[in-house]
Amino acid sequence: MTAPRIVVDVDNGVPPWRQVRDQLVLLISGGVLPVGTRLPTIRQLAADLGLAAGTVARAYRELETGGVLTTGRRQGTVVAALPSHAPDPLAAAAAEFVAVARSLGASEGEALDAVRALYSVE
């Protein structure tokens, strides 16, 4: 199972559990993680992100309470529904791009330059 593309920035002032939750919401609402997709275990995602398991557990719990995720012993944690406050697909695509750009070490300016360069290509 491939881990979702999530990047946590511990220096941005937003609690890590919320960053994980918000990015999962964007990935689900944008169709990157469609309904029925099995997510990594709490321990696996925590290890992948370098976070404590309790941090990821809180993000999963928040989404489970909202009906977005379900967790069962046999199937694990699965995307159950689209978030009721789903952002538009462009916001989801932007969030995924930012996560990838950050993981590559790109600055905000470098990321914006890359987007502008692609827009100028016809």
Rank of each mutant, 00 (worst) to 15 (best):
E96F: 08
S107M: 02
A46L: 04
E96M: 14
T41K: 10
F97D: 05
A86Q: 12
V32K: 10
R61P: 12
S103P: 02
R61E: 13
G36Y: 02
V115D: 09
Q19E: 08
R74T: 11
S103F: 03
T65E: 13
V10A: 15
P89C: 02
A53Q: 13
P4W: 01
T65M: 09
A114F: 14
V121N: 12
A92M: 11
A52T: 09
L112K: 07
R18W: 14
T77E: 14
A91K: 05
E108N: 12
E62Q: 04
V79S: 03
I6N: 05
V98P: 02
A57F: 08
L51H: 00
V121A: 12
L118R: 11
S120C: 00
R18T: 00
N12L: 01
W17H: 12
R38M: 04
S29W: 07
L69K: 14
D113N: 05
P40N: 06
F97P: 03
S84Y: 05
T70F: 04
A46D: 02
G109Y: 01
Q44P: 02
Q19A: 06
V14S: 04
T41V: 10
A117R: 14
D22W: 14
L45P: 09
G76Y: 03
A95L: 06
P4I: 03
R18L: 12
